[in-house]
Every structure is written in structure tokens, then in C-alpha cells.
Amino acid sequence: MTTITMHPSELAYAFSYSETTDIVGWGRDPFLPTTEADGDPKRWYADGAARLAEAGRLIGTEEDGLNFTDEVTSAVLTLADPVLVLMAQRKEGDGMRRFTVHMAKETVLGLTRHPDGMFELTHYADLTAATLACVGFLGAARSPVQAGARIDSTQEALAEIHQLATNGQADVASAKLVKLGASSQDAASIQQAMAAPSAAGMLSILYCADNVARNARPFSVMTNADDDTWILFPPASLEGPMVIEQSSIPALTARVMVEIAAWLKLSA
């Protein structure tokens, strides 16, 4: 696992050579100038080129031709044309923190942004490690080892329960969960995870082609104060069932890995 930090102008400059502006999981804005002082895009790119050269990431001479280092080349190609992106979005008040993992060929690359605007790029050895990083980022619980209780319902029913739980109608929400088949203990745990999570967010598997997310497998991930993690997801389309299941770091990591493997088999 190795990490480098890059200025957004460095990335913007490099992306432009791959004819890419939007990065899956981020769009384009984070790589564009954010302040008046950053000036027009031409200066932004020139600044990016200068920073890359200074950091030894853009090598060679103008006369003989310039090249990105292998490290930057593989990072740019992975970000610009991934086959798979894991997008972890963690709730922080009304806002969110973002962490994405991009895969292409043999590269598994994590991307986050610091408060100063710098991007952190982390190379992971494999997808298992990167998935664990995403699940850890979302604050999932360490246990139970195996996935726990599971309720198959619908989007409408669970949305209503969520609404009740977050509007202070804990008892009504729990009662509805019990009616769907949850034990009273699990119902209380789910209700707490919905109403007052200690950590919450989304983990989305985005299957990509031509730098477009073609299909998504999103999971809402909620952990309550008792360190119970519940995930909520539609196994098929939104018109199909919606499932809520007790999960954990190993269980969610396994679910993601198996889901990706299944997708690959079905898409091969």
C-alpha cells in the first residue's frame, strides 16, 4: 500500500491528455480551479504541468518529448477509464466525506480529498484490501463475523419505517419492523441505527465502461451506538425487494466481493 498526494491541477492536467473531464465518483468540479486567484483554466493547467514536473512526475524535455512517470500513467488511466469503482460516502452532519476506489487492469487505486484540496491516491495490493478500507471508512462494526438477521421487504415499506424512526416515532417504527419479521431486539437496533447512527453512509459498487457508471449496486450502511451495523440494499432493481440485514466489516466485505464476482460471471 503506497500513498501519494497530488494537487487537483496536476490531475486536471493529466486527465486532459486522456480526453477526460469527469471522474466516476467525483465528477469534474473537484479538479477545476475553485477560487478567483486560481485564474483561468489555462493557468490552472500550466500550474498543474509545473507541479508535475517539479515533483518528477512529468519527465523528459519539450524537445525530446515529455512523458508521465509509470506511476502517474497507471493512476490516470485507472481514474479515467475504470472498469469498477467502489464509492464510499460517509455522512458527516448534513455533509459527507468521500472515498473512492478505482480499478482498471491490475491497478486498484483509492482516492480521497483533504480539506486543503489536495488529493490522496493510495495504491492497494488487491480488491479485498481496498474493500476493507471502504468498509472501515464507513465505520462498520467489527462483529458479528457472519451476517445476522435479514428482512426482505420493499423500498416503500422501509422508507416509511425510516421516516418514522427519524421523526421520533421509534415505537411505531419498531412495531412495523416486528411485523415484517424482525425480533423486537433487532427491530430496536435497526430503529436506533436509522434514527441516531454513530456512523452512516453508502457503499456503491459502480460497474463502468467508457468512463460511465453503467450499473450500480448501492448499500446504505448504518451503525448504531451499540456498534450494530445494518445494511439496506435492493438485490435487483428498485422495483424488486429491498433487504435490510445485520452486517459487519467481514460480512460486508464478503458481500461486496461475492457481488462483484457474480457480476463478472454474468457479464462475461
Partner: peptide, 22 residues
């Protein structure tokens, strides 16, 4: 170590990342 480090890395990233407007 890679798997364990990656998990720890993910947890650490929470405090290092910028909070964006949702």
C-alpha cells in the same frame, strides 16, 4: 498486513478527508 493495514487506512481516512456539502 496488507489487508489489516488497508482496513486501518480506511478508518484513518475518515478524519483526513474533507467534509463536502451533500
Amino acid at each position: 498486513l496488507e489487508a489489516r493495514d488497508a482496513l486501518a487506512d480506511g478508518v484513518e481516512k475518515v478524519s483526513e478527508t474533507v467534509v463536502e456539502k451533500y
